[in-house]
Write a protein that binds this DNA or RNA. Sequence first.
DNA 1: AAGGCGTGGGC
DNA 2: TGCCCAAGCCT
Length: 379
Amino acid sequence: MSRTSTSSSVPQLDGGWVEAIRHDLLNWYDHNKRDLPWRINRDPYRVWISEIMLQQTRVDTVIPFYDRFMKRFPTLNDLATADEEDVVKAWEGLGYYSRARNLHTAVKEVAASYGGEVPAEWNEISRLKGVGAYTAGAILSIAYNRRFPAVDGNVMRVISRWLSLKDDVAKVSTRKKIEALAVQVIPEDRPGDFNQALMELGALMCKPLNPACESCPVAAHCHARQQGIQAELPVKTKAKPPVPAAVTIGWITDGNHILLEKRPPEGLLADMWSLPTVETNPQEQTPGQTLRATLQERGFSVEMGAQLGELEHIFSHRRWQISLIEGVVVTTAEPLPDRYCWVSPGQWDQLALPNVYHKAIQLISTKREGSEGFQGRLF
DNA sequence: AAGGCGTGGGC
DNA sequence: TGCCCAAGCCT
């Protein structure tokens, strides 16, 4: 049943321990599970959307996005027939935007190849874009009650502590090992509930910091707790700190419109709309010079104006130190280059902008409201 | 295998 | 404040 080919080092779990864990954890889950919007039924589409949104994202953050998204795209067919721009717009502010594009691609694939029914087979569902080992197991177990592991960060932490595992959970080999252990614990009759119970325990009790062992329903079976080393587990290599980068963002107008550019198709904020953005080498050029030169290459002649402010935005691996610069187009590129567009205030909210640009616009708006002669508008 | 990929919250 | 994290996936 398990898809993982594991090393021989994966131990066979003790039958009595497994029975006790199953009983106590499911009993606790039955009485303590949270009411979450994706738990109102087992619609595979609804489960799917929730699992994608929940990737690297907290439950409290996801809930409002999930509610809006399900209202906007109630069924798989609604999403499959939507424009990608609308899908990304519904994802605006949630981050990791490739999730939205991959999801849209995968949903269209399900509509085209599976008659709109989310596949219940591992070999089919795990081939879908954006559906990895965790998500495949989560959908198969929760929506179809099939006995597959769904090993996320919670489950790796919980099982590392239960079994006092010292393996580095940042490694793929460790995840596979824990999958092989988890599948032994999953009961035949309630795989979906058990997988969710594991994650619920990780989120509410077996937290990374200050785990609530005193009130934990399975503390009696936890080897790390028995050894008093629960705070040392799981072992996890630290992430590298974000690399600083000097970035210039332009507020470029022609008097009535603001210039937007589409980010490159690969890399950070791929294919997202943005204010014109360039990386600057402060040793060589001023922010204004860098931006003006870049726009010049695209055919825009721009007169750079005042520095509108500075701000910092931290991504998972990059730290943008941002200079906001005003500019006025003297000669616009004709025709307008690919990946550029002028927008007027009325069209503004139809495009999906990453939060870093909303922060920039917010800063500009705030600054201008306080300045003389500005009427509280962006134009 | 390891790094790229957003954002916001908690301490 | 700075750091770690949160229901991972892709390349």
